[in-house]
């Protein structure tokens, strides 16, 4: 038990690491919520076997090739298909009918990690016969996560849970018709990917790049402090057309932000807001 404490990163050490990441590599984590960041650093020191924080910092300074690994491990890339099924059900019932009236549907999945949510949305759109006129922009700051979206391959062991989620979201098909099982992996059909535009994008430092009718950013804001949350919500406001929809994670809210007055939450209290002005 003692060793656990000895290796816990201290505030001053975390500052050194964040400073190095920013000045040398341009990754700005300074407005990330610190409790979670500390856990990520502690975890990295254990799994990559650094005996001390100093050795981690030394590695980062000496070995630029280690950077992607740090970025990948400092950020949380846990996601699942049809996570919060009732939210997806609301999308099917209340949001897709609105989108259907548009000649063209542009959607942004911001900070979507390995892409499970993007594939879920593609399935929803296909079932509503809207995929052909949609474009799904899938972005994350983490290059290796993005690579996984391109592959469209997810652990087969998760499919039982995803299938249950899919049914709860109002899905009527056999979920297995969307993928091919191979060894321990499920490879999702390429036609789902055909309407995805996959790219890195850092919500902290990169700008708006298009106008969307629907933006997802779920369980990303929880890792930011209030100041950074405000900035990112402004970015979404700029990137969303009037009467467009913003979807956040199940414990996230825009209530305390500057954009709150311009948005109205759906009546069933799912974390979906409509830009009303």
């Amino acid at each position: 038990m003692k060793h656990v404490e000895a290796n816990n990163v201290r505030d001053e050490e975390l500052d050194l690491l964040l400073d190095e990441l920013f000045r040398t590599y341009g990754y700005d984590f300074t407005n990330y919520a610190r409790a979670s960041l500390k856990r990520r650093v502690n975890r990295l020191m254990i799994i990559d076997r650094f005996p001390s924080f100093a050795e981690l910092l030394y590695r980062l300074r000496q070995d630029p090739a280690y950077l992607p690994r740090i970025v990948e491990e400092l950020t949380v890339n846990v996601t699942e298909m049809f996570r919060d099924p009732t939210m997806f059900k609301t999308l099917r019932e209340q949001v897709l009918p609105v989108l259907a009236t548009h000649p063209f549907i542009r959607i942004w999945h911001a900070g979507c990690a390995t892409g499970e949510e993007v594939y879920s949305m593609a399935i929803l759109l296909e079932e509503a016969n809207l995929l052909h006129k949609s474009l799904l922009y899938a972005t994350d700051l983490n290059p290796s996560a993005i690579e996984n979206i391109r592959k469209g391959v997810f652990p087969l062991s998760e499919m039982k849970q995803y299938s249950e989620n899919y049914i709860l979201s109002g899905g009527k098909n056999e979920f297995s018709k969307y993928y091919t099982a191979k060894y321990n992996w499920a490879k999702f059909d390429d036609r789902l990917k055909s309407k995805m535009i996959i790219s890195t994008h850092n919500l902290v430092s990169d700008r708006s790049f298009n106008e969307f009718v629907l933006i997802f950013c779920r369980n990303v804001l929880i890792y930011f402090d209030r100041h950074l949350q405000d900035k990112v919500l402004d970015l979404f406001d700029e990137s969303l057309e009037k009467l467009g929809f913003l979807v956040l994670g199940s414990k996230e809210n825009i209530r305390f932000s500057g954009i709150a007055r311009k948005f109205k939450q759906l009546e069933n209290k799912e974390r979906i807001w409509r830009k009303v002005m």
Binding site: R34, A35, S36, R39, R40, V76, V78, N219, I222, K251
Partner: peptide, 11 residues
Amino acid sequence: ENERTFSLDAS
């Protein structure tokens, strides 16, 4: 986060 604020983590 500190004595006044919780935060959540989906890791």
